[in-house]
Simulated scan of single mutants.
Amino acid sequence: MYDRILVATDGSPTARRATAQAVELARQTGAALHAVYVVETRTGYDNAIVDPEVVRRNLEADGREALAAVETEAGSDLAVTAAIREGVPHEELLAYADEHGVDLVVVGAKGRSAFKTRLLGSVTEALLHSGSVPVLVVDGADGEA
């Protein structure tokens, strides 16, 4: 059914729940697991107070940590192809899915920037509206998004 599953992660609690779902699906279907963290480039850190390069490096470090958590969840029996991309998150995730022939994207209902939308995270909503790849949305603990 699935040959390649992509889990989008930002290290948030719902991303960790999405990771658990993606790992289980990959094990059940024998699919290859891909994990992607996107460094957001649309943030307004370009000012005299905050050095944008420092922010980017910090976000990349967060990405390495989030991807390491996916690899830990997968364990030694499931290989993970991990990538950090830079750009607009939903655009980068869709581009990655297209480039790698991904059959399913697994994503948390809300990520770290959940304040941007009330019901679904903006990245999740954009992925759902793309129509280019099936998306499995995983909610938060106890049904909270």
Rank of each mutant, 00 (worst) to 15 (best):
3 D>H: 11
7 V>C: 12
7 V>F: 02
12 S>K: 15
14 T>I: 09
15 A>R: 11
17 R>K: 15
17 R>Q: 03
18 A>H: 06
22 A>D: 13
23 V>L: 01
24 E>N: 05
25 L>P: 13
26 A>M: 03
27 R>V: 15
29 T>P: 14
30 G>K: 00
36 V>Y: 08
37 Y>K: 06
40 E>R: 04
41 T>Q: 10
43 T>Q: 12
44 G>V: 11
44 G>A: 15
46 D>F: 08
48 A>G: 14
52 P>E: 08
52 P>W: 11
53 E>A: 09
53 E>I: 06
53 E>L: 11
55 V>T: 14
58 N>Y: 14
60 E>A: 12
64 R>F: 05
66 A>Q: 07
70 V>W: 01
71 E>R: 14
71 E>T: 14
72 T>P: 00
72 T>A: 11
73 E>K: 06
75 G>T: 12
76 S>A: 11
80 V>Q: 02
80 V>G: 03
84 I>C: 06
85 R>H: 03
85 R>A: 03
87 G>N: 07
87 G>F: 07
91 E>M: 15
93 L>P: 04
95 A>C: 11
95 A>R: 07
97 A>N: 01
100 H>T: 09
101 G>S: 06
105 V>D: 12
106 V>P: 02
108 G>P: 00
110 K>D: 04
111 G>S: 10
113 S>N: 15
114 A>M: 05
116 K>E: 12
117 T>P: 01
117 T>Q: 05
118 R>K: 11
121 G>F: 02
125 E>T: 04
126 A>D: 14
126 A>G: 06
129 H>N: 10
131 G>T: 01
135 V>P: 10
139 D>L: 13
140 G>S: 03
144 E>Y: 10
